[in-house]
């Protein structure tokens, strides 16, 4: 199991949260905290969650994404998600969430090179 890690980047009011490693029961709380922290700044209108560096995600991770999306919608804010690798994205596909969440290309939000 690869170590989960979360990084937050704030460039000109555009907040990008990058999750890496395994997103499961053990690491989901850390991601949830990072997302909550990012949203404390009322100026932040959109948030981008970059899942490209994830190696695994289960329903616990899905719950964090869905809860964040729901909260942001309720506050009139918007969550963008940069797709993870196929095994991670399959979880969204199975839940038929492709049409429910705002999946975006890396170039649109959070820069073309997430590893910069």
């Amino acid at each position: 199991m690869s170590e989960p890690a979360t990084s937050i980047e704030n460039v000109d009011g555009m907040v990008v949260v990058r999750a890496s490693g395994d997103l499961d029961l053990a690491s989901a709380p850390a991601l949830e905290r990072a997302l909550t922290e990012s949203l404390q700044d009322g100026q932040v209108e959109t948030l981008t969650l970059d899942l490209r560096a994830l190696s695994f995600m289960d329903s616990t991770g899905l719950r964090v994404v869905l809860a964040t999306d729901a909260r942001m919608r309720a506050q009139g804010r918007e969550l963008f998600v940069i797709k993870g690798p196929p095994s991670v994205h399959r979880v969204f596909e199975l839940a038929l969430l492709e049409e429910r969440l705002r999946f975006v290309e890396p170039a649109e939000r959070g820069g073309s090179d997430a590893d910069a």
Binding site: L62, E93, L94
Partner: peptide, 27 residues
């Protein structure tokens, strides 16, 4: 929002059954 079931045929072939639908309780 659930893994698709499988039809396991007597000849050993395995087919995914159904079409993905939205998970429940959110939307």
């Amino acid at each position: 929002g659930h893994p698709l079931p499988y039809a396991l045929r007597s000849d050993g072939s395995v087919q995914a059954v159904g079409q993905p639908g939205t998970l429940l309780g959110i939307f």
